[in-house]
Simulated scan of single mutants.
Amino acid sequence: MNKKIRIGVIGAGSFASRRHIPIVVQSPDAELVALCRRNKEMLKKVAEHFKCDNIFTDYKEMLDSVQMDGVIIATPHALHYENAKLALEKGLHVLVEKPLTVKTKEAEEIAKIANDKGLIVVVALNPPYWQHTNYVRELIQSGEIGEIEEVNISWIGNAEHVFGLAPMPDNLPGIVPPTIFRGDSKLGGGGHFIDSGSHLLSELFWTTGLNACEINAIMDNPEFDMRTIMSVKLENSALCN
């Protein structure tokens, strides 16, 4: 019998309770062994729903106390670095919600630690798993539609409630309600683009298979943006916005 992969969750909040934790408990190859969240009342609700006995309000205590193979990190963006760094130093594989970190040097350090220790770090981005992006990727990389010269991607939607700029809807799914950490630019690492723009960049790089060599951006507020226009020059000189 194959050994189940023991998973702990740091940041057992609304999103983790809707997306990550159900997948773990439903998988025949994984076992949910610990949950961590700073809000003890909300943590108990999640733990009771998923029948997890090991609960912690301090992720360091969880990493020291429970035998695990890997962790899922779904904490506020600015905490990803310290959460992932310590988990890697403990010898654990890491799946972390986007963005990996809020600073380039932090991301580079996380990558180096993982490489040095032979561990896996995965950022939870959707495009590599979407059917339509894989279809577009095949069209582009097979050469069927020729060399890419220009790419345009737009994302228009209302996310003001998760930034604390509008009332939170009463009918949101999940075991517990979401927090409004995105309304704090220090915890969120910025505004809307660092939260959701990574999906668009991931889609661009995944489908084209190309890296960026030049990036420019205009934001309505660089400290806490709600609207951003970005121009990207790819390594084949294609222009994207």
Rank of each mutant, 00 (worst) to 15 (best):
L165T: 07
D170Y: 11
D184V: 02
Y129D: 00
T133N: 03
D29T: 07
K85D: 05
I215H: 02
F193A: 01
I23T: 13
N115C: 02
G143N: 00
H132T: 11
T104S: 02
N126G: 02
A159Q: 02
T207C: 12
I175T: 10
S17C: 08
M219L: 12
L234F: 03
G70Y: 00
A12R: 13
A78F: 12
A217L: 10
A124I: 00
C240S: 09
I55L: 13
I180G: 03
E203Y: 01
L100S: 14
S202C: 03
N171D: 15
A84L: 11
D69S: 00
G189Q: 07
K85R: 15
E223I: 15
R137I: 06
E106L: 02
K4V: 13
H192E: 01
C52L: 00
N241F: 04
G188E: 11
V33K: 14
I229S: 01
L201Q: 12
H49R: 13
S142V: 00
T75A: 15
G13V: 06
I113N: 03
A111P: 08
G13I: 04
S142E: 11
E214G: 07
I153Q: 10
E106F: 14
V162I: 15
R18D: 05
G11P: 09
N221Q: 04
R18W: 01
L119N: 03
K112D: 10
A74H: 01
H20W: 08
K233I: 15
W130L: 10
A30E: 11
I113C: 00
V122N: 08
G183V: 06
L100I: 11
R227A: 07
S185D: 15
L172C: 01
I10S: 13
K112Y: 13
A12Q: 12
R37C: 10
G157C: 15
E97H: 12
A78P: 14
F56S: 03
N158G: 06
Q141V: 09
N152E: 07
L204D: 03
L100E: 08
R137L: 05
L32M: 14
E48Y: 08
V71P: 11
P76M: 08
P127I: 01
M226C: 05
P173E: 04
E149A: 04
R18T: 09
N54R: 05
V25M: 08
E48I: 10
D69L: 02
E160K: 14
A212K: 04
T207I: 07
H161R: 06
W130R: 02
V66R: 04
S231I: 12
H77Q: 08
E48C: 04
E144C: 08
S14I: 00
V24D: 00
I153R: 04
Q26G: 09
M168R: 08
H192M: 06
I110T: 04
H199R: 06
I110G: 05
R38N: 08
G188L: 02
E61S: 05
D225I: 02
N236F: 04
F193E: 00
T133K: 02
S14A: 14
A30W: 06
I194N: 01
G146Q: 03
N216K: 12
N152R: 13
D69Q: 02
E150K: 14
D58Q: 03
R182S: 09
V33Y: 00
F50K: 01
H161Q: 14
Y135H: 14
L100W: 04
